[in-house]
Design a protein around this nucleic acid. Sequence first.
DNA 1: AGCGGGACCTGTGGGC
DNA 2: TGCCCACAGGTCCCGC
Length: 278
Amino acid sequence: MPELPEVETVARTLSPHIIDDLILSATLLRPSSLHRLSMPLSSLAGCRITGVRRRAKLLVIDLEPPTPAGPTLLIAHLRMTGRLFVTAQATPPEKHTRCAMLLQKPSGELQQLFFNDTRAFGQLLACRQNDLAAWEFWRALGPEPLSMAQDDLKPRLNGGRPVKTALLDQKVIAGLGNIYVDESLFDSRILPTRPAGSLTGDECRALLRSIQAILRKAIAKKGSSIRDYRDADGNSGSFQKGFFVYGRGGKECKICGNTLERIKLGGRSTVYCSHCQQ
DNA sequence: AGCGGGACCTGTGGGC
DNA sequence: TGCCCACAGGTCCCGC
């Protein structure tokens, strides 16, 4: 599910519900949903939520009090089907509820924060800031695409692997997934199979412009909902209505009318227009 | 180094 | 209706 625009939307919609809340308890309902580097979730009892933000495809919840090892964090990776949302105090866990936290608002009102995840690929990680250095995935994350300057992409795209594979690599650029890579490559008219190192400076600048424009539009549309994705208020995104290629293999290119090709690249379904993209 | 394939999970949709 | 297969927004790990 969630790529950068969806996680950004979850952060924005979740924040007003839980900011300044006190965590009274945290119950893990499926052990495998806890990251191997995580502290026990029970250690979060007594912490207050001070921020909700996004890094790459990760949702980061800032907590206090800090510890000698730096600020306390609760990080969620939603993977394919993870969902975070608040619900009434009395709501029982569902079949796919992996974690339930009891929160107390500053007004004294109680509510729950649920982490639901059908496929159970998603994970929660409670840790101190200093612990993040031990998490190789976090340490190696590439730059945020919306903060990159126009010449920042070219030096990161090299080697003979397909440019699509490189863009999916979170060490190259953080937050892109299958949807937004295919859409960005189409928008910049670049074939996904092109060796990453073969792109010219102009092509890299055009590609980054496309990535940034598409991510901004997708965030404005509250993300893309293919099947499972909902924001923290339970609403779907609508950017999927504007897809040019993702999920449209065998259909007509909206630009030239050519039949869109569908191939496997890096194990991922890939759709492109062999006429528009070069 | 980099690729493909499989694993991790559950659900859905299409074809027969 | 029902069964079986393919496939799904992500990442990791193994073997070649």
